[in-house]
Design a protein around this nucleic acid. Structure first.
Length: 913
RNA sequence: GGGCGCUUAGCUCAGCGGUUAGAGCGUUCGGUUUACACCCGAAAGGUCGUCCGUUCGAAUCGGACAGUGCCCACCA
């Protein structure tokens, strides 16, 4: 069969086929009863509204690399996919979607709206799952989960009720973060702070019964309408006489007390502060201490309400302007100064958050946090119940945050989400919290019940993800086998939102940590270092880039940049480089297949040359001896496998990627393939057969090594290798092992020596600008007998690589360093016998530079070795190493100096000047 | 206000106590070698931000400073 294979790798032609194949064949379906050690990972569920962005691409690449790698090494592997219902985000998206069609969601009513969201989810949502399938993630699609499915709802209610019964969930009236745009309360984490240039307005409050004014400074004049006191520091001499008196609140003409409280900072502003308990967290506390009234002056959507007198109905910022104007008119505005402060914005809508008094549900965190802190603090490798967080600095961040954790506002004034399982009786407002809708009030027995209209924070259900997706609270086989999960990979931006809470809930409800290791990956940033964002137009679309460069190239590129702890800046350059690598692999395969066709034409049976069994027995020998380059390649392969295994075990994706890149391109293509070309075409069929067997075995191993990084390309090419029946996918095959048979330090050393000699000769040729086709003779001498033998037995390859007409090996003492162009190292001398005029000046400059470099190295070593303290304190190994290198460098330098002298001696002749 | 990073070749970044500091891209030179110009060969290019310290030895550890980025934080 002649293999038709495109000249350049075209991922677009290939990827969809395998993506479909992997899904259709349910290739990655996990079996909890399968043998082997377990590797389980649950996906950080992407938002149902989302499409794949570059951050997912990185995260999923890392997850999928590790998943495929484990699976190929015989682990019982589960990669569980799913999505998050993403309360606020989704509700916002669908509200807008409806509004675009002229539908007001509030008029629709709750039930109708929910139906619309589900419908929207079926039609437009979940795009990301299709995209994940398209990029070939090796998930078990039969276990796909959704945080708002009936099973998850049951779990959420279970958890809520238990926490309520344990007193860890409670209802209270507090000052909370209110988003006037989303019309819901937010948790502290959902408020993002931003430094803004603002002002400090100094406002004069007349003191009742005197001619005095008390001037307060505020950043938010509009809230003064709700002031219920003015506070000064009890020790402040300036104001002591006013404490106990009353101030007349400007614009409202309401008398409010002047109180003393230690919270006031005498240094800040005027040292007097207006107290607005309903609109400021500090003031709220102060108000409680002094039993002040709380006057809310705003509506849900941040307009002034009836309590705001003349300003009622105005937007809060308009009101601010108007109030400042009015104060100015009345002569009560003392001054305005510049002031920068960090204001809180809603994470979703970027609206300025309004602190507001509200009755909400909270989760008490301190007790839940304690064991979760312990699990991380007491981490030791292999110690049950402890968790490793990588990188290290995130571990510290986690612990700091956990030690200072505060209660979590879990209710949301939304319709999309898990409805709070609490009912109130209309008569007495008693609370009944229950798993199933109750028939009557648990306290008074009233049947007149009304469910709490609110839903839970999205993260309340996501925090249950690692166990709720595996069948909890039932002890299913999945749960028994796959929980605790092995690993959690996600971005450090949701360490507190999600990871911390999963750890707390996992421990609390299952008695076990939810995962053994957390690896927090980098964020992908724009060229200017900002976090990529679609709204700012700074995002890169991975789907388009995958289309352009190929998913494998994208994966490889991200992996090769994913050094732990540093963020990634992606660029076209790097993607192109990865794409070139894919193409390189493709073309190496083409080379292989061309040979394969040639072999078939000779009547050979491919199965006898390269069936999996044949491949597994490589490397093959000629006359009882494995050819040097084959031994070398397999030794390099073993070393690479070890590096990759070690790197991936430590989440060092960039090192793993770099190793396979170097192996495939540098070792396999540049040296091995070039080396064996003549053997493959050898008329000696036996010789050619061995070369073919070793080549195809090496290629097969390389494909398997590459597979976790580049699944599509490797799957495609692997299927074109001669297969025994029943081999379904490379993904189910074995990852290469660093086989003891492959390890071969001698071969590594010998080929390195040859590479060095070839390098020296090529360097001469390039210096002389020799015609690359012109074959020239060379002379070689060495003091090492082993090297001499290696050169002799590999003379043909050496001549080919250095384009020599012949390579003469001479005894050391017969080596003529005076003619031609010479390169020397401590162990060998090599001379290109090129008689035409050599520019002596160029040669002299090169020699001088090299000698200078050597001299620097020699001097520093001599100095160090001459130092008695160094000799007495440095380890033996270092000293011996230094001495050995020094000796080599001296030999080399002597040779170079001698040549420089020779050159100077005959310079006028050679240079022709 | 606290905390955490980063500063290494023109660019983007690895390396994080030991011998002449690496990669990719870019640059220069030379190539139509029948797998690949998404290629092959060669080369140039760095006092590892500055200063001080620890050490026999520092790009690597500690401190200060200067730039730069991020996270946390209820001083109006």
């Amino acid at each position: 069969m002649a293999r038709e294979i495109a000249k350049a790798y075209e991922p677009q032609q290939i990827e969809p086929r395998w993506a479909e194949f992997w899904v259709k064949e349910a290739l990655f379906k996990a079996d909890p009863n399968a043998p082997g050690p377990v590797f389980s990972i649950v996906i950080p569920p992407p938002n149902v509204t989302g499409s794949l962005h570059i951050g997912h691409m990185l995260e999923h690449t890392e997850i999928d690399i590790l998943t495929r790698w484990h699976r190929m090494r015989g682990y019982n592997t589960l990669y569980l996919p799913g999505m998050d219902h993403a309360g606020i985000s989704t509700q916002r998206v669908v509200v807008k979607y409806l509004a675009d069609q002229g539908i007001n969601y509030q008029k629709l009513g709750r039930e109708e709206f929910e139906k619309h969201v589900w419908k929207w989810k079926e039609e437009a949502g979940g795009q990301i799952i299709e995209q994940m399938k398209g990029i070939g993630e090796s998930c078990d699609w039969s276990r796909e989960r959704f945080t708002l499915s009936p099973e998850m709802s049951r779990n959420v209610r279970e958890v809520f009720v238990r926490l309520y019964e344990e007193g860890l969930i409670y209802r209270a009236t507090r000052l909370v973060n209110w988003c006037p745009d989303c019309l819901t309360v937010l948790s502290d984490l959902e408020v993002v702070h931003e430094e803004r240039q603002g002002h400090l307005w100094h406002i004069k409050y007349p003191v009742v019964g005197t001619k005095e004014f008390l001037t307060v400074a505020t950043t938010r004049p509009e809230t003064m309408l709700g002031d219920t006191a003015v506070a000064v520091h009890p020790e402040d001499e300036r104001y002591k006489h006013l404490v106990g008196k009353k101030a007349l609140l400007p614009l409202m003409n309401r008398e409010i007390p002047i109180i003393a409280d230690e919270i006031v900072d005498r240094e800040f502003g005027t040292g007097a502060v207006k107290i607005t308990p309903a609109h400021d967290p500090n003031d709220f506390e102060t108000g409680k201490r002094h039993k002040l009234a709380e006057i809310d002056v705003m509506t849900d959507d941040a307009h002034m309400n009836a309590n705001a007198g003349a300003y009622a109905g105005m937007d809060r910022f308009e009101a601010r302007k108007k109030i400042v104007e009015d104060l100015k008119t009345q002569g009560l505005l003392a001054k305005i100064t510049d002031h920068t402060n960090a204001i809180g914005l809603c994470e979703r809508s970027k609206t300025v958050v309004e602190p507001r008094i509200s009755t909400q549900w909270f989760c008490k965190m301190k007790d839940l946090a304690a064991p979760a802190i312990k699990a991380v603090e007491e981490y030791k490798p292999g110690k049950e119940g402890t968790i490793l967080i990588i990188p290290e600095n995130r571990r510290t961040e986690y612990l700091n945050w956990m030690h200072n954790i505060r209660d979590w506002t879990i209710s949301r004034q939304l319709w999309w989400g898990h409805r709070i399982p609490a009912w109130y009786c209309k008569e007495n407002k008693h609370i009944t919290v229950a798993r199933e809708t109750p028939a009557k009030c648990a306290t008074c027995g009233s049947a007149n019940l009304e469910q709490d209209p609110d839903v839970l924070d999205t993260w309340f259900s996501s925090q249950l993800w690692p166990f709720s997706t595996l069948g909890w609270p039932e002890k299913t086989q999945d749960f028994k086998t796959y929980y605790p999960t092995t690993l959690m990979i996600n971005g450090y931006d949701i360490l507190f939102f999600w990871v911390a809470r999963m750890i707390m809930m996992g421990i609390h409800f299952t008695g076990k940590v939810p995962f053994r290791t957390v690896y927090l990956h980098s964020l992908v940033r724009t060229g200017s270092g900002e976090k990529m964002s679609k709204s700012k137009g700074t995002g890169l679309d991975p789907v388009a880039l995958n289309q352009q460069y190929g998913t494998d190239a994208m994966r490889f590129c991200l992996a090769s940049m994913a050094a732990p702890g540093t963020d990634i800046i992606l660029s076209d350059d790097k993607l192109a480089s990865a794409r070139n690598f894919a193409n390189k692999i493709w073309n190496a395969a083409r080379f292989l297949f061309v040979n394969l066709d040639k072999f078939e034409q000779t009547g050979a049976k491919l199965e006898e040359l390269a069936s999996p069994e044949v491949r597994a027995r490589a490397p093959y020998a000629v006359d009882g001896k494995v050819p040097l380059v084959d031994a070398w390649l397999f030794a390099r392969l073993a070393a690479t496998v070890e590096m990759v295994n070690d790197a991936l075990a430590n989440y060092r994706f960039h090192e793993a990627a770099q190793s396979v890149y170097q192996f495939f391109w540098g070792d396999f293509c540049d040296w091995y393939i070039e080396w064996v070309k003549p053997e493959l075409q050898s008329v000696d069929r036996e010789r050619a057969t061995v070369a073919w067997k070793n080549l195809s075995a090496a290629f097969d191993a390389a494909l398997r090594l590459l597979h976790p990084f580049m699944p599509f390309l490797t799957e495609e090419l692997w299927h074109q290798l001669p297969q025994a029946t029943g081999a379904k996918s490379i993904a189910l095959g074995h990852f290469p092992e660093a086989d003891a048979r492959w390890k071969n330090p001698d071969a590594l050393r010998d080929v390195a020596q040859i590479q060095e000699i070839v390098g020296a000769l090529r360097n001469i040729r390039a210096d002389l600008k020799l015609d690359p086709k012109k074959k020239v003779a060379a002379e070689f001498a060495t003091s090492e007998t082993a090297t001499g033998r290696v050169i002799q037995t590999n003379q043909e390859a050496l001549e080919r690589f250095a384009i020599l007409s012949e390579l003469r090996i001479v005894p050391r003492e017969q080596f003529d360093a005076k003619n031609g162009v010479v390169r020397s190292t401590a162990t060998f001398d090599v001379r290109l016998m090129y008689s035409e005029a050599v520019d002596a000046n160029v040669e002299r400059t090169r020699l001088k530079k090299e000698i200078e470099g050597l001299q620097k190295a020699i001097s520093s070593k001599e100095k160090q070795l001459g130092d008695e303290t160094f000799r007495s304190r440095a380890p033996e190994k270092i000293i011996k190493g230094l001495e050995a290198t020094l000796a080599q460098q001296k030999i080399e330098q002597d040779k170079l100096l001698k040549r420089l002298r020779d050159l100077d001696g005959g310079s006028s002749q050679a240079a022709g000047t």
